[in-house]
């Protein structure tokens, strides 16, 4: 009777346990506790939330390990942290710290313009962003145990998250009606391994857990993403850039559980204070958009 650790089963198993939950960006122990009190199923430890990364500019890197450890000490729920796309040494460092999940994230400045991290090399699970089914399946082929839409982080504008979720989920629906020979051509067209395309068609969903991220700012946004068919929601700047973070965080948690019940959604949406001001993606020059990072 021997224990086996670091298998894909235990990696994707943690993602399964996060489903129906809200993962919140936090920058210190106090925010982490507010998130845990509000019912977050995990927190993302960061030095700066995406809205600040956007406004301050410069190279965005993995957070100071001291910051991450402080947050790990503050809460009992899983702690995630971000590494730059392709920066496998930042990932080795986070694994050594004992973080529960790594986000190989386009929100940080990419370290490699051709290669993502070979995530099979790690015992810690990875979540990666995607804009469409091809990207999602390429990340899964590289070992990602969880997928999220990229959306457009730090904007408070949900339009890109909706676009990406509709693209992924719409393509899966299309896939289910395809003849086998069409599926080969489709795999080639989207640049994804045929075996994963076939598996997705058979399952009628992505082979791993699929969350929404990038622009979710209100309980209604969160419920919208759930009704579109994602398994849970990341909220980045939307909580701690708002007028009353504790209240908004709790309301978004309730909205994700009761996403099909408009009466509860109406109740939890009342009196939340100012939402984050936000910035429309449409008004943003192409160069400022970050969803295009990664491929």
């Amino acid at each position: 009777m021997e224990r086996t650790t670091g298998t894909f089963t235990v990696k994707s198993g943690l993602a399964d346990m996060l489903k129906g939950g809200v993962i919140m960006d936090v920058t210190n122990a106090e925010q982490a506790r507010i998130a845990e009190e509000a019912g977050a199923c995990a927190v993302m430890a960061l030095e700066r939330v995406p809205a600040d990364i956007r406004s301050q500019g410069g190279v965005a890197r993995m957070s100071d390990p001291e910051k991450i450890l402080e947050i790990m000490d503050a809460v009992t729920i899983p702690v995630m942290a971000k590494v730059r796309i392709g920066h496998f040494v930042e990932a080795q460092i986070l694994e050594a710290l004992g973080v529960d999940f790594i986000d190989e994230s386009e929100v940080l400045t990419p370290a490699d313009e051709e290669h993502h991290i070979n995530k099979w090399d790690f015992k810690v699970p990875f979540v990666c962003g995607c804009r469409n089914l091809g990207e999602a399946l390429r990340r899964i082929a590289e070992g990602a145990a969880m997928i999220r839409t990229k959306g457009e982080a730090g904007t408070g504008d949900v339009v890109e998250a909706v676009r990406h979720a509709r693209s992924v989920l719409g393509d899966i629906r299309r896939l289910q009606t395809m003849a086998p020979e069409e599926m080969f051509a489709f795999a080639k067209e989207i640049g994804a391994p045929y075996e994963l395309v076939k598996m997705t068609a058979e399952m009628g969903r992505l082979p791993v857990v699929n969350f929404a991220a990038g622009g979710v700012a209100t309980p209604a946004d969160a419920a919208l993403m759930m009704q579109l068919g994602v398994d849970g929601v990341f909220v980045g700047s939307g909580i701690f850039k708002s007028g009353n973070p504790a209240r908004r965080a709790e309301a978004i948690v309730k909205a994700v559980t009761h996403y099909k019940d408009p009466h509860i959604l109406a109740e939890v949406s009342r009196n939340l204070g100012e939402p984050m001001v936000g910035r429309t993606v449409e008004s943003m020059p192409e160069a400022e958009r970050i969803a295009g990072r990664g491929w």
Partner: peptide, 30 residues
């Protein structure tokens, strides 16, 4: 438990230790 405790339903006359085996990298199959 988390700081400040958490509501339990109870019913089983046991003591559980949350995250007894450690963090995610210690998760296992057996």
């Amino acid at each position: 438990q988390k700081e400040g405790g958490q509501p339990l339903l109870g019913g089983l006359d046991i003591v559980v230790d949350r995250n007894y085996f450690g963090r995610q990298v210690d998760s296992f199959e057996i």
